[in-house]
Amino acid sequence: MPAFVESVKRTCAAAYDVAALTLDSIRHIGYALKRHKLLFKQLYEVGNSSLVIVGVFGLFVGLILVLYGGDQLRRFNQEKLVGLTGLAIVWEFGPVFTAFIVAGRIGSAYAAEIGTMQVYDEIDALKSMGIKPEAYLVSPRLVACALLLPLLVIYADFAALMGGAGMAWFYVRVAPREFFRIFFQYLEFREMARSLVKAVIFGGIIAVVGCYHGFKTTGGAAGVGKSTTQSVVHSLLAVLVADYFISKILLAL
């Protein structure tokens, strides 16, 4: 029982830390924008390291969705509606899968990077120079992720739609024209906006969770490995949980 109480206490303290880190880094967004060199470096890191894999991922998501979607629709003789799989991409697959990739690539990198800095006293060195790590390290990363994730989502959506249209053409025998006609007929701007709002929030979550685990790192190189793993697990979890609640709220509004 004491162990349970202890772990509840730890969870609560962690919640406090995460909330405090989030607020702090949001408060220092101005600093990140002013130190645009730091920001550009982070933007470059995020965009550059994710571009290829996000594209490939999106392409295959599109292929798979149309593969199954076409099969299902054939049962109802409604293959011509296979363009509707595009809606699933925009609603969920685009933002969530992109967030997964970025959590794996970027969130873990943040945890490792900041974790290493923590282990080698670099964070303390920053503090002793009167620089807030939240401002110098977290804010640019937060802004970079929150800004770039929507763009990556659009890019992933595009790749997935291309893959889907191609698959629809060769496998389901629906011309790309028809695919996109159905897609755009049923796509609402609201849905696009919803998915991008989600992407911004997912980006923030990934950056904050990654950085939080970095700061929490103790115990040398082994500790860095541990917090890297944890950051990925926790970002994925947080993204999915947030996805549910954000969707619920945005759908109701």
Binding site: T11, C12, A13, A14, A15, Y16, D17, A19
Partner: peptide
């Protein structure tokens, strides 16, 4: 520490 736990608990 205790304050952290309390605030964190409220937050959760």
């Amino acid at each position: 520490m205790a304050r952290k736990v309390l605030v964190g608990m409220l937050l959760l």
